[in-house]
Each structure stands twice: as C-alpha cells, then as structure tokens.
C-alpha cells in the first residue's frame, strides 16, 4: 500500500512560558531512562515528554493524527529508539523541528515516522491546535508562514516501504 505523501493534522507547538519553541529537548526529557526496560510500543506513549517542564501531561492531551512542532536540536542525547517510538505509540503523525539530533533523525527515518526539518516558521501566525497540511514530496504547506525541507530520497524510500527492514536489501 502506498503511503500518503500529503498529511494534515492539528499541531502541538512545544513552547516554553515565553512562547518560544523549546530547543535542545533531549531524549531523557522525551522518554526518561527510568522507562528504558519497556520494549512494548503500546506502553511507551504514556511516558512521552514526562520529563519536559510544562509538558508532562502531553500524553493525556495528544490525539491520534496530531503533529508536533519543536525547536532546534530535538532528540539530542542518547540513542534510544523509544524516544521516537513513543510518538508513534500516541499516533503522532509527524514531528517538525528546526533541527534534529543526528541519531534521533536516523531512528525516526528508519522507523518510518515522518520527521520534517523546518526551514522557516513565523510562530506568531500559528495557534495551538490549529490544523495544517503538509506535502512531504515538495515540502509545501497550506501556510506561507511555514516552509519545510522535503523528504530526502532515503527517507522517502524507507517511509514508503514502512521501515528500514522492509526497505533494506540484504
């Protein structure tokens, strides 16, 4: 089944008390190391952001199909896959960030969770829980205040295949 290259969903702007997108959210803030013995994806969602100040109740608010928008260097820190899988567990459709930690980026691409690099965003123009549309092929959106990088070829291929295992040739 071909996966859709256009997605739409309601946004969560992950902002601090000054209303700026939070930078440097590391994997211990996303999915704390005390939960690392959890290997079942279904059980991971409930702990998403439970060590991120101001967002500890995220998992109870998030809805299937939502989009998450964060700042720079998202997912820095450890190599844990759970920090990606917990979003899939909640049914989050895509993560948009101003930049990603290198390992996090690979983990998300390999698991087929769309992560998108923001080229430009005018935060003032967006309301929490507003619905937006994104074209993964060319990076266009339904707002001129949000521009994103399109998928790279590897990312598109893995996304279409489902994950790295289904894509990778032995």
């Amino acid at each position: 089944m071909k996966k859709k290259m256009k997605i739409q969903g309601k946004i969560w702007l992950i902002i601090d008390k000054d209303k700026n997108l939070i930078n440097d959210i590391d994997t211990d803030m996303i999915f704390h190391n005390k939960y690392l013995a959890i290997t079942d994806i279904e059980k991971m969602g409930q702990y998403t952001f439970d060590n991120l100040e101001g967002w500890k109740d995220f998992s109870s608010k998030a809805k299937t199909g939502d989009l998450v928008i964060v700042g720079k260097n998202f997912g820095s820190g450890s190599s844990r896959q759970q920090a990606v899988d917990c979003f899939a567990s909640l049914g989050i459709q895509a993560i948009l960030a101003e930049s990603f930690g290198a390992i996090y980026k690979r983990n998300a691409i390999n698991s087929g969770l769309p992560i998108l690099q923001i080229k430009e965003i005018d935060l003032q123009r967006f309301n929490q829980r507003e619905e937006i549309e994104i074209n993964l092929v060319d990076g266009s959106t339904n707002s001129k205040y949000l521009v994103i990088e399109p998928f790279s070829k590897v990312q598109k291929d893995i996304y279409q295949a489902g994950n790295l295992f289904k894509f990778g040739k032995i």
């Binding site: 450890s78 190599s79 844990r80 896959q81 990606v84 390992i103 690979r106 983990n107 390999n110 698991s111 994950n163 790295l164 295992f165 990778g168």
Partner: peptide, 10 residues
C-alpha cells in the same frame, strides 16, 4: 557511531 535498535538490528 551510536545508533538506535532498528539500525543496529539491520
């Protein structure tokens, strides 16, 4: 290079 568990399994 540190990697996630899918990368390493692959």
């Amino acid at each position: 290079q540190g990697m996630g568990d899918q990368d390493i399994a692959f």
